[in-house]
Amino acid sequence: MSLEVVNAGFLALVQDFGRYGLQKYGITNGGPLDEHAYLWANHLLGNHYNASQIEISFGGFSCRFTKKTMIAVCGADLSATLNGQPLGLWQSHYVKSGDELKFVSPKSGLRSYLAVKGGFQIETQLTSCATVVREKLGGLSKTGEKLSDNDCLPFHESKEELNKRVPKKYIPAYGHKINLRFIANQSVTGCKAEVLKQFIGQPFKVTPNIDRMGYRLSGEPIVNKQAGIISQGLALGAIQLPKDGQPIVLMRDRQTMGGYPQLGCVAYLDIPLLAQSMPGTEVSFSSVAISDIEEELRRYKRFFGVNV
């Protein structure tokens, strides 16, 4: 025993960096919705980028440690406390056997990442322990189930180290108004200029209809004469435009194929901002060229030691 789940809350999932190479069998990537927060949590502890963590959505989660270790919590502010004291986010902390960590409810952002030194020791399924509920894949049970009360997640004990924190400039503010950079798609399965103009020219609202597959937005309906396309792959961050004219941004657990025209694709490094956005958040989009953002992504991957 290492980490005991006292209260699993709304949605707590085991996640690592995700499952790759299996999309051709219809198996999605999974992995952290907010990859930025996830990678910082591992980085603070000197973990491998792929070390498994718990993704806690919306709060209501509490757990007890039965071994000493260093932990880090990054991402949303879910009013976390350690033994009743407010816990500093975006930094590492030492915990001892018997310590209790609680996540209450969202103050800003939606998803918080809990990492332990060395990661949780969870068997992988098809190369990853990322939990995909819909595909009944991964997680502690290897059946895609979310964590439940009394689950135990093993990890290796480790000793106290100096606390580390993420430099302020890398800590995002999860505001009520966000702007996402995106790469427009004007191909035959994309959208025409006049359709894209309607998309860029207005702010949207994040609807309550958000999950690990996709975030539905709402705004002035976008008029598009092209109703459907021949089904093709769906990239992370792809923005689909269904018939009702309301865009959907595809996230980590998305289906691997889709038949709606695509407005474009959200910049990889902006996806975490959307992942943390509560319903009601205002979202606007600005078009960028890939050449302007490609190097930024490469630098980010190198910094965190990510090699995919």
Partner: peptide, 12 residues
């Protein structure tokens, strides 16, 4: 290659 999705008339 990380992932490849061949379909009717496209390859992603």
């Amino acid at each position: 290659l990380v992932d490849i999705v061949p379909s009717y008339a496209s390859i992603q």
